[in-house]
């Protein structure tokens, strides 16, 4: 089924606030094998000029994926999530995500395209603190394989 192109330009959110914790950053860093002390040791992070431990660059997916999954599940969009693969992903940071950040995500559908039996949905999710400071924009393209 083709995706509903009337959804292009539509914005979703902001989501419920997500609180970035030292423990979650350490867990994520362990899982990807990132050895940096700046992801685990607050003292080392402060010495490097950060207010607290910082997250690896792809950590933003933990927050942005929750937001984009909610968009993808909107019944009006017509996406079959079981047929979806991840096509492209990018992150643009104003500063690193760090422990103590309380983040809300706002997602905009940037484009819906189709190519043969494939449908492509590109979303841009802005992650900002509850105080309104932009931290990261996560742009994602997911591909729905046709049946």
């Amino acid at each position: 089924m083709a995706l509903n192109t009337e959804y292009v330009g539509r914005t979703f959110g902001p989501t419920e606030p997500y609180e970035v914790s030292r423990v979650k950053i350490a867990e994520f860093s362990d899982a990807i094998g990132e050895p940096s002390a700046l992801c685990r040791d607050a003292e080392a992070a402060v010495k490097a000029g950060y207010p607290d431990v910082i997250a690896p660059p792809t950590f933003a997916i933990v927050i942005s994926m929750k937001a984009t999954s909610a968009v993808a599940a909107d019944p009006g969009l017509g996406l079959d999530y079981s047929m979806v693969v991840h096509g492209e992903q990018s992150f643009t940071y104003s500063r690193p995500l760090r422990a103590g950040d309380v983040i809300v995500a706002t997602t905009t559908i940037e484009s819906i395209r189709s190519k043969g039996s494939l449908s492509m949905l590109t979303t841009a999710t802005d992650l900002a603190t509850v105080g309104g400071e932009h931290v990261c924009t996560a742009r994602s393209t997911i591909v729905e394989r046709g049946k």
């Binding site: 992801c39 690896p56 792809t58 990018s90 992150f91």
Partner: peptide
């Protein structure tokens, strides 16, 4: 990201933009 961080002296905050196609 880990590969880039290691190259940039071990600071994950050094990666300010990062995009890929799978």
């Amino acid at each position: 990201g880990k590969f880039l961080t290691a190259w940039a002296g071990g600071d994950p905050g050094a990666v300010v933009e990062y995009g890929v196609r799978f």
